[in-house]
Amino acid sequence: MQIRRVRWHIVVFLAPAVLVYTTVMIFPLFNTLRLALYSRIEQERVFVGLDNFRRLFLDPVWADQFWNALGNNFWFFLIHMVVQNPIGIALAALLSHPRLRFAALYRSAIFIPTILSFVIVGFAWKLILSPIWGIAPSMLDAVGLRALFAPWLGKEEYALTTLALISVWQFVGIPMMLIYAALLSIPEEILEAGEVDGITGLAAFWKIKLPLILPSIGIISILTFVGNFNAFDLIYAAQGALAGPDFSTDILGTFMYRTFFGFQLQLGDPHMGSAIAGAMFAIILVGVCFYLFGIQTRMRRYQL
């Protein structure tokens, strides 16, 4: 057998990226999953198998919080899907209109919230919605809807929805940009052919453009899913680690942070924290696989 010369430059080119990626990302990921199988009993690390997961899903001490956070997380995601994506698509459809003036200006302005940090966004909205400052009530007053005002972030029944809508406000720029790009890549000829057949305006959007941008909508949905299921910052900035009022805005990210780091009198528990991370990993993996194998492969792709 002939001995092949090792092409060292390939190794040199690959090594730094693979090294950093493996040690800082992949290894800790699996190590976290491994840590979830241990527990600390009287200062000793003991292997407990899947016991942490059993406690997380079934033991009332943990399970109530876990299912609450998971349910809230799904609600958070649902609001994004039904509010953020349609608004993003509508804005993109308007912006991609060929003879619209100032399109670049609108585009840049609408994207500004997306570049701000969660800390800014969380606090800014907290101040604006605050009954003490009174911007929101006095603006509602101006249009005669004063009666509708409530301290939305302070009420259990509204807080989570309000935060989800704030997050939608912040991130609507992303679906807008991606859909905008997809709409621009539709060739003129197809639209003109539709025009000849009498399909114009809204009908052209529903019958020609929307089917063509479905793959982009799929990508946006999975990005939203992954983003929402490891969200943390906005809730933490606006409501603190306790995700008040009374845990009504608790999602998996804040739950994991509290468990792992501890808060007030409860000590941090890295092993239960790892178990929550494991659950998050499983949820995200299921979502991504569902997208890759269930949706993406079945979606009809039109050759443009």
Binding site: L14, A17, V18, Y21, T23, V24, M25, I26, F27, P28, L29, N31, T32, L35, I222, V226, N230, F232, G253, M256, F260, P270, G273, S274, A277, M280, F281, I284, L285, V288
Partner: peptide, 24 residues
């Protein structure tokens, strides 16, 4: 394979591994 391995991290958020990253 190397390409696929490096692409894994596009979809999996690094935050999942936080506990072990802090340990390290």
């Amino acid at each position: 394979l190397m390409g696929l391995y490096l692409a894994l991290g596009i979809m999996i958020p690094i935050r999942i591994g936080t506990v072990a990253i802090l340990d390290m």
